[in-house]
Amino acid sequence: MNTSHLFNPFKSVRLIITGTLESLGYNLLLLIQSARQYRSIPNRFRETVNQISICARGGFPVAIIVAIFSGMVLALQSGIEMARWGQEAQIGTLVAATMCREMGPVMTAYILAGLIGSTMAAEIGTMKVSEEIDALEVMSIDPISYLVLPRLLAMALVCPLLTVYTNVVGILGGGVVGKLVLNVNFSLYFRYAQEALTLKDIYSGLFKALIFGFMIALVGCSQGLRAENGAAGVGKATMKAVVIALISILIFDYFLTWLFY
């Protein structure tokens, strides 16, 4: 009896493990190859600026909505509980620390993974299946220097910058809810927020954002470069770029938090 169509959990686990290891190896190799191209950074200045503009324009409007509502939800949820103990003024502490340490960098990274990581995978994947990458290689143009390096640099810069902006907007959103719903005045809210934040909260969050930015671009580019089998392959690469980036962000977030605190 042919049983090849039946679900085989051992085979599936084996495929997941080998696939993950292969993907990790490829990403690591791509990172090393990109680092080796550091001499070509001045030549890629124009394209890097172009990529910064694409990433910022794509991420900015979505980040504003997500950040403001995240800060508002955070303030509302914590404020309702704190009000029972008469501590609603403390929401400034909670919102500021949570935004800067965790929610700011992670949310920004999630937004950029969905918007920009997927775009990178789709764009480079389309170039791969339409032989544009082969054309670059035949012209002796290194696709890593030409395509990957500017994207890595752009995301490493945009992700922390957007995180700063997300943090600020999120804290403001929390302040609005504090004033309108919990009747905590702005000056008190911001005083608590300011007192709660240490330099470490800020730089650890920005360091996370830097790593996430690199990771999103690296995963997006590597999936694009490995796309094959036409439009379906590009779609698959795009989907994988987003899923891998989202999972990696969470895993790295845990270890980076553990490293800092």
């Binding site: 170039m127 339409s130 032989e131 544009e132 082969d134 054309a135 670059l136 012209m139 002796s140 143009i141």
Partner: peptide
Amino acid sequence: RKKFGFLFQSGALLNSLNIENNIALPLRE
């Protein structure tokens, strides 16, 4: 590869660049 020119089946022009920049690309690079 400097010895070669390659006409790909699909053309393989870089869609983000105009014609002038596509043609000039190898020389500029």
